[in-house]
Simulated scan of single mutants.
Amino acid sequence: MGQTRHDYPGLAGRGALSNAAGRFEPYTHDAPLPDRLPTEVRDETIGRVISTNKSPDLGFDRSINPYRGCEHGCIYCFARPTHAWLGLSPGLDFETRLIARPGAAAALRRELGARSYVPRMIAIGTNTDPYQPIERDRGIMRSLLEVLRDHRHPVGITTKGTMVERDIDILAEMGPELCRVGLSVTTLDADLARRLEPRVPTPARRLRAIETLAKAGVQVRVMVSPVIPGLTDHEVEGVLRAAADAGAVAASMIPLRLPLEVAPLFEEWLRSHVPDRARKVLGRIREFHGGKLYDAGFGQRMRGRGVHADLLQQRFVRACRETGLEQRLPPLRCDLFRVPGSQMSLF
C-alpha cells in the first residue's frame, strides 16, 4: 500500500516524505500518513548470515547485515530498494519497519566452522547500518564482533553511528591486523545533515567518534559518502581536513547513487527541502551518469563520469595528499584465523 503526506515538512525524525509501494507490488493505494510513525521491529529466523558478491567495484566478497531496513532514515540510502523484496516500501517503511536477525552470531559461528570455509575479510554495514538506534537494545552487532574476535577473523565496519564507541574494547583487542572502521561524514553542516540523515548523530559527534576510536588504537577511514553534486560537493576538502585532525588515517569517496526507488524519493526530498537548488542538483547528477539519474554499470556507478566527476576525483586526491589521508592501508590478516571448535580456538 502506498501512502503520501501532502503537507510537508513531513514526519518528525524521518527522511522520506512518502511511502509508495515497491516495484513488485501489483496495487497502490494513496492514503494520508499520520503525524508520526513509530519504529516497528520484527525478528527473522536465519540459517546463514554471510552474503557473498562478485562485484568488481567492491573490495570485499562477503558481508553481513545484522538488520534489514535502517532507522537512520538517510534519504539517499542506496539500500532502500532492498525493502521492496520484503513487500514493503523503500520509502518510510524502510525507516520504520525493521527486521532484526537475533540468530546472526550463532549462524556466523557455524559458517566459520564449516570445513570448506576460507577466511577473507567480512564487511559489516555495507547495506544497512549495524549501529542504527535499535542496536542499543538488540546488541546483534556486538555479538557478531565477539565471534569474530574469538576466532581472530578480519572485519571491516562501515557506519554513521557513534554507538561504535561502545565496542572499542573488542575493536582495540582485535587491533589493526584484524579490524578497521569506516565512518561516514557526508557534510559538516549540522542543519543539512539533520534533514538528509534525520536519526544519524551530528557531524561534530561523528568527528569525536573518530577521535575516540583513533586514541584507542583503532584504524579509522573517513568516508566522504555520498557526495551530492551541487549540494555537498564543495565540502569535500573541509570534511577531509576535519577527519584528519580527528585522527582518521585514510579516506574514500563515492558520489551519490540513486538506484530504482531511491531516485523519486530523493527528488521529492530535494523539491521540498532545497527547492531553489533542486534543478541544479538533478542536472549535475545526470552529468555524472550519462544523462540519467543513475547508471548501474560497473566501473562507473562508484565514480561517475564527465568533466565534473573527473574534477571531483582530482580534488579528492589532492585533498587527501594535503591532509595525509592518501595512504592505502595494508590488507587485514587472514592467517590468524582460528577455526571454531579447533584446539587453537580454546587459547
Score class of each variant (00 low, 15 high):
N19W: 02
D245C: 11
I64Q: 01
M141T: 15
P176F: 01
D137N: 13
T162Y: 04
E173S: 12
T82G: 04
R271N: 11
N19T: 02
D189C: 07
Y117I: 01
W269R: 05
V147Q: 09
G2S: 14
D30N: 08
V236T: 14
R328C: 02
E173G: 04
G15Q: 10
T39A: 04
R62M: 15
E211I: 00
A216I: 04
A263Y: 02
V249D: 09
I170S: 03
F347C: 09
I254Q: 08
S225N: 05
P26S: 13
V262K: 02
V236L: 08
V317L: 11
E326W: 09
F288D: 06
I46S: 03
C77T: 03
N19S: 11
Q132K: 04
G217V: 01
A243H: 02
L108A: 03
F266S: 12
D43P: 02
D295E: 12
I254P: 01
R36K: 07
E197R: 02
V41P: 05
I134S: 05
C334P: 01
L325M: 09
M253G: 02
P102R: 08
P275S: 13
A242T: 09
P26G: 09
L270I: 04
A79S: 14
M174F: 12
L207S: 03
R36D: 09
D335L: 02
R221K: 06
P130G: 10
T128A: 12
L192R: 13
I170P: 06
D276E: 15
A190V: 09
L240R: 11
K280L: 13
G87V: 04
G22L: 03
A246Q: 10
R149L: 15
N53S: 15
H308S: 10
G299D: 06
L336H: 11
